[in-house]
Amino acid sequence: MTTEKSKTPVKFGASFTPHMVCSRYEEGKGWTSPEITDAKTFSLMPAAAVFHYGQAIFEGLKARRNPQGEVTLFRAEQNAARLRKSARRLVMPEISDEMFLNALRLLLEKDGHLTPEASGSGLYLRPYMFAEEAFLGVRPADSYIFAIIASPMAAYFSDDNGFLKLWIADSARAAPGGTGDVKAAGNYASSFTAQLEAKKHHCHQSLFLDAKEKKYIEEAGAMNVMFVKKDGSIVTPPLNGSILPGITRDSILTLGRDLGFEMKEEPLAIDDVFAAGHSGEIVEAFSSGTAVGILPIGELVRKGADGQIETVHFKGADQSFPVATRLSKALLDLQEGKAEDKHGWVKTYV
């Protein structure tokens, strides 16, 4: 665990603060009040429903320090709303904004001093819920645990070139009518095969296509994606029920318009993106997410119909990626309290 004040760990998710928040739900009784405890293991029966039927959901958000040294959160109420949506989809008990935000405050009051001070770093917060009841019948569980843990973090990815390489996955992440637009734990487990395939081809992550036609770009394993055209417009795949509605994605759409960019939500066929990258019609690409912020995508790699490996490069003005850099600075300055928050997105917690 990380206990030294403001120390930034080298690797994301590898160290944790010494405390956590917990609450328990029981059918007919509701949720107990969230309580701060020492970080501890859970004692679960072998028949706990989470092990057998996968009722597990989570969120992710990052606490940051502003110039006054206060610890703040960015659009945390949106995480609360998305957790409720996930809970409804997996037939789990919902948590109110008040309970969710109070639980975050409890943990930050105890461990907020461990929030790293360096720009771009933060204290990653992981709220999650899982089915606790020991029962093998196929039905929603009657008891659940909600908890929040925290992990000081620097960068999610690091690369000597300063950009990501994404492998075009053969497998699908989600299908229409499924759980792709909520943060169900199983969504991420099913992406691991594609992640390993990406690593075999020296890529950081996989980029998934739609399940029906395997034609249209959806999202990466832990990120939404956007593409910058030569005319300056920025395009991202539309939310279609199988793409996670990223809070960072939504924020970028708003900030981009504030900065004068034409922001579009349009289907992006993978063949068209490769052709546009080769021709120079698409000049940049970048990913977005809570943990990653905004990171340039320098290369997309895929296996062609002939079995040969094809790579498209997004040079971004000789790999300076000016649009991604500008948007990243605007977003980070806002999140760290260095720019005017005209949308009221940042709230002080400690």
Rank of each mutant, 00 (worst) to 15 (best):
V50F: 03
E26I: 10
Y53R: 01
E26D: 13
V50S: 09
A47Y: 06
P34R: 00
A49F: 02
M45Q: 13
T41Q: 14
T37A: 09
P34F: 00
Y25H: 10
S33K: 14
A48S: 15
W31S: 05
A47C: 08
L44D: 07
S43M: 12
F51W: 04
P18T: 11
L44A: 08
K40P: 02
A48L: 05
T32R: 05
G28D: 06
E35S: 07
F42S: 10
T32P: 06
A47L: 12
P18W: 06
M20H: 04
L44Q: 07
H19E: 07
K29E: 15
T37L: 11
M20P: 04
V50A: 12
A47V: 00
E35G: 00
F51G: 00
K40G: 11
C22S: 11
A49V: 02
C22H: 02
A49K: 13
G28C: 08
S43C: 11
P18R: 11
S33L: 06
K29I: 08
A39C: 09
T41A: 15
T32V: 09
S43A: 13
K29N: 12
L44R: 00
F42C: 12
L44F: 11
P34D: 06
A48T: 04
T37N: 10
G30R: 07
F51M: 07
T41M: 12
D38A: 14
K40A: 14
P46V: 11
A39H: 10
S33Q: 12
Y53F: 13
H19Q: 10
T32I: 03
A39F: 15
K40S: 14
M45Y: 10
D38H: 10
H52T: 01
I36Y: 01
E26F: 13
E26A: 11
H52Q: 01
T32C: 08
E27K: 09
E26V: 14
T41V: 08
S23Y: 07
Y25N: 06
T37P: 02
P18C: 07
H52Y: 02
W31F: 07
E26M: 08
T41W: 03
R24F: 14
C22P: 00
D38Y: 02
P34E: 03
K40T: 12
H52S: 03
P46W: 05
T37Y: 06
T41L: 10
